[in-house]
Simulated scan of single mutants.
Amino acid sequence: MIDSVLPDLGALVAVAETRSFRAAAALRGVSASSLSEAIRRLEAHVGVRLLNRTTRSVTPTEAGNQLLARLTPALGEIAGALDALNNFRDSPTGTLKLNVPTIAAQRILSPIINRFLAAHPGITLEISATDSFIDVLAAGFDAGIRYDESIERDMIAIPIGPRTQRFMAAAAPSYLAARGTPQHPRDLVNHACIRHRFASGVILSWEFERNGEVIKIAPKGPLIASTAELGVGAAIAGLGLIHTFEEYLSEALGRGDLVPVLSQWWQSFTGPRLYYPSRTHMPAPLRAFVDFIKSPGERALTP
């Protein structure tokens, strides 16, 4: 009996955790229809409804919640037992799923993951880049990368990538020749500013700091971009000033396409951290990645 229903039980847990057939299917790499069929098959086998389905949501029934309360820890133990077999291999195998901010995916992770995957050819790394704050564990990820202010206190967090970063302000020479160069952050209210909208819909204020004085500006301008590349391109074209991560501006500054503005007010902050739950049986791919990030050789390559 258990052999025939075990895959369907895994499907139930995935759908219940994500509250969505589509999201669960994306995480498991299968079709939503196959998960729906698995749940129907399981419900027919046990003779009770396990999930309530509407066009907008999927939630466990009372019977489903009782089953999940005992099933989730049991499946976790099975996964841990299988993962423990990695201790008998020269190199761990398996899939490591990370949820990371866009800046990390585009400008920070590439050299790190290239070295890691070269050292661990048995591991598959799956990276999802998003600037929205999510519960990474409920969404099926092993770990995430975020900045200090958005990491839950019950998580373990270790530095990854640059130990400090900063936001820069810049503009094209043509723009500054036409509109003048701001000498103080408050001057920006009289300038065209290129803003960024996050996937959550939030448009952050521009924050500057010097000698302990912090100034926040709510800029206005002709463009609100959803990607850094679009914003940088508009700044190079002379449409306005831009304020963003140094990593996005360094190449344009190096070429002279953009020039620095208000450099004495640029704000530095702690770099990103890899975070994951504290648990006794850490999946082997995650354990290998944590050990790699902590290794002296890797730290020596981090600015």
Rank of each mutant, 00 (worst) to 15 (best):
T95A: 11
S226R: 14
L67P: 13
V48N: 01
G29H: 11
G76I: 04
T130P: 08
D3I: 08
E62D: 15
I215L: 13
L98F: 10
H196N: 08
N87V: 11
S278H: 10
I217F: 08
E43S: 03
V15E: 00
T95G: 04
N52H: 14
Q183N: 11
S278F: 11
I203A: 05
V15W: 06
R153N: 12
V232A: 13
A38Y: 09
L35C: 13
I103Q: 05
I215F: 04
T72A: 13
P272W: 01
F208M: 04
V189Y: 15
V261S: 04
A26C: 00
N114W: 06
Q264F: 02
G140H: 12
D83L: 06
A16M: 05
D131K: 08
R56I: 04
M282P: 12
A11H: 12
L9T: 08
A26G: 03
K294C: 02
S33Q: 13
I134S: 08
R153L: 14
N99G: 01
A79I: 01
D187S: 14
T280Y: 10
F245S: 13
N211E: 09
S20A: 11
A24M: 08
G231H: 03
A139R: 15
P60G: 01
G297V: 05
D8P: 12
A138D: 09
S174V: 13
L253E: 00
P92V: 09
E251P: 14
R210L: 02
L176N: 02
T164S: 15
M282A: 12
G10I: 03
P73G: 04
A143L: 05
R166E: 08
M168K: 09
A138W: 03
P159F: 10
R163Y: 05
I242E: 00
Y175V: 05
E43W: 03
A237C: 03
G254C: 10
H196S: 07
T59R: 14
G180A: 02
P222L: 10
A118H: 14
R115W: 00
P222M: 06
T93W: 00
F208V: 07
R255M: 01
I113C: 03
G271I: 07
I158K: 13
N87G: 04
A24K: 06
H120E: 12
L96A: 08
G10D: 02
R186Q: 10
G94S: 10
G254L: 02
P182H: 03
H120L: 01
P173A: 09
L51R: 02
K216M: 01
I194W: 06
A218Y: 11
S263Q: 15
P60F: 00
A237T: 00
V259M: 03
L96C: 10
G221S: 05
I112K: 12
I236E: 03
S36D: 06
G47C: 05
L35N: 10
A81Q: 11
V58D: 01
R197Q: 15
I215P: 04
I112Q: 02
I112V: 14
H191F: 15
P296K: 05
H196F: 14
A284C: 10
F292M: 10
A14Q: 07
R115D: 07
A118R: 15
P121V: 05
T102W: 03
R197S: 11
E209N: 09
R197A: 13
T227G: 08
L75K: 09
D83S: 15
S263M: 09
R197T: 08
E17I: 04
G76K: 07
H243I: 03
